[in-house]
């Protein structure tokens, strides 16, 4: 159990930074949005991992269950996932408009066009 616990935190850190790397190092705008989605997923994973209780079950009353994992982080993340896809869609909409106006979705090319 202890190994898994530390591993969840490590995966959170590494996944977060993989996403962040895509955001800062890649020049393609769609790739940046993909990186942002990975970044988000890492945060979701951290919250849900924090809510887990040893020997607990999903927070739904059943016939015999007594120990429940914390419902609060689950509520926060549930809504965050749907809000996340909506904002990602907004970002994709902006990328589509940029492609139509500039003919490119590479950051360096767009900046080159702007400088002219």
């Amino acid at each position: 159990m202890q190994v898994l616990g530390i591993y969840y935190y490590w995966v959170f850190a590494i996944l977060l930074m993989i996403g962040f790397y895509a955001v800062i190092a890649k020049l393609n705008l769609v790739k940046k949005l993909i990186g942002l989605t990975l970044f988000q997923a890492a945060v979701f994973l951290l919250y849900i991992a924090m809510g887990k209780v040893e020997g607990g079950t999903a927070p739904i009353y059943g016939a015999s269950a007594a120990v429940f994992s914390s419902p609060l982080p689950q509520v926060l993340i549930l809504t965050a996932i749907v809000v996340g896809i909506s904002t990602t869609a907004l970002g994709l909409g902006i990328v589509v408009r940029i492609k139509e106006e500039y003919g490119s979705i590479q950051e360096d090319e767009i900046q080159e066009i702007d400088r002219r």
Partner: peptide
């Protein structure tokens, strides 16, 4: 991690809707 509700949301949104949205954006861009 005992989060049944969240797993359901992630599967429907992340694996379903999000993929379609990214693909339709890709078909317009490159």
């Amino acid at each position: 991690l005992d989060a049944a509700d969240v797993a359901l949301t992630e599967a429907a949104v992340g694996a379903g809707v999000s993929t379609v949205l990214f693909l339709s954006a890709l078909s317009i861009t490159s």
